[in-house]
Each structure stands twice: as structure tokens, then as C-alpha cells.
Simulated assay, not measured.
Amino acid sequence: MTTDPRDFVVGPDARISDIDLDTEEFLAPDGERLTEERAEALARRAANLVPGRKSLGGDGSVSPVLQFRTPRKREAEQLAHELGIRTSELARRALDEYLDNHARGA
């Protein structure tokens, strides 16, 4: 099941209030009752709506972004295409290899 971020847009006329979903009845747009448990599951799914890749370190945190300019962008894009990876993955691999071989204390 794919999650469409447009399903979670709150309009300017929306009323937001705090209710106990286990004691008060609230129907979701699909017509089913929303419980605290279901709301938690939806919130976990909604956390995946954050754009970009998730943790590259495997700890669940969003990985920091590093941007740079290069006159060799087309070459990088072509090589990434040939390798079947994204250009960002190629850049990560290149930086990792460089740091592994040249970082102080390595």
C-alpha cells in the first residue's frame, strides 16, 4: 500500500482538537473507526512521508546532507547510470573510499 502525502493535507478551515480515540468515536475518511492504536500506526506511516532518504547509518535518524559543485557532473551522471545507481550513491561511495584511504588516523 502506497501512502500519498496529499491524503494528509490539513486545510485552513480544519478544526483540530485533542480527543481520546478509545472512548470517543471518530471515523476516518475510509469510514472505519479511528482508535489510538490505529492512529499510532498511521503516525508511524506518516513519518515516512519526509522527503529524501532515511538513515544511511541504520539508526533511524535522517542522514545529514552534503552538497557541492563540480564541473564533472555529466561524467558522474553517466558513470552512475552505467553502474545502475543514483549519482548521490556514486558520490557517497567516492567520498567513503577517499576518506577510508586519506582520513587522519586511518
Rank of each mutant, 00 (worst) to 15 (best):
A106Y: 10
L99H: 04
V62Q: 11
R33D: 01
Q78A: 12
R15L: 12
L27I: 03
S88Y: 00
E36C: 07
V65Q: 10
R69N: 12
D4C: 04
S17A: 14
R6Y: 13
I85A: 03
L21W: 08
R15H: 13
S63L: 04
L42A: 07
T87G: 10
D59M: 02
S88N: 13
D22V: 04
A103G: 10
R74N: 06
F68D: 12
L79A: 11
P64R: 06
E37S: 14
L49R: 03
E89C: 02
E75F: 08
T23Q: 15
I19P: 07
A103W: 07
S17D: 15
R38I: 05
D100Q: 10
R74F: 04
A103K: 05
Q67Y: 08
G31M: 05
L56Y: 13
F26K: 03
A14Q: 01
L66T: 07
E40Q: 13
I19G: 06
I16F: 06
V9C: 06
P29W: 01
L90C: 06
S61N: 12
A94L: 08
E24T: 15
R53L: 08
E40K: 10
F68L: 09
M1N: 03
T87L: 09
A94H: 08
E82A: 15
L79Y: 12
R6M: 02
F8R: 04
R104E: 14
G31E: 12
P12A: 09
A46R: 06
G31S: 13
D59G: 13
